[in-house]
Amino acid sequence: MSDAAAHEFQFSSAAHQRETAISGIWLFLATEALFFGPIFLAWIYARLADPSAFDAGGRQTELAIGVTNTALLIASSFAYGVGLACIEFGSRRGMVLWLLIAWALGAAFIGLKFGVEWRMDLEKGLFPGATFSVHGPSRSGAQLFFAFYFFSTALHGLHLLVGLALLAWIIAKARQFTSERHSPVRAVGLYWSFIDIIWLILFPLIYLIGRAS
């Protein structure tokens, strides 16, 4: 299988193998979408039941960090896209460069989110429980908001870490890819963009809705 033209014996050609692999990734992303679906559904449902408390919770979040992180992730997906275009045009060096940028932007998101923002949140006493710092009538609903917040950002962060590992793997194996054969680069790119899309749904749920009302 190490030979460039080779394909596994159940496929009729290397191209057949490549398109099959990409179908698999798309299907996997469908699974992932249904995985995150319940959080979004439960979140919106819970907010409808108690909007004022949710909004009170939402106003406690760090908007500046949220906006910065959103920009980081979008830029990272963009960088990945440029990297993918580079390998399609045969520039392996360009691909590595842009993927390194994408990786760094993703890592910056993780650092900012968990190193800075979470620490601020915890110091402000926003983790639900007896020490929760929001008082008054919104206390219980705001706790619910932050239960969602910590749960979903942790899960999203975990996906991002997996994505960073995959990116590192692609960069490490960059020598194998050519303008014809690079379906792993494409596959990881789909996953990387997917994580981005999940964030683009979380971002308004966390930072914007509470401030808009």
Partner: peptide, 14 residues
């Protein structure tokens, strides 16, 4: 859960 049922015309202080 008084915040879920804010009655019109009264401040939410209960």
């Amino acid at each position: 859960t008084p915040d879920k049922t804010p009655v019109a015309g009264y401040p939410l202080i209960m």
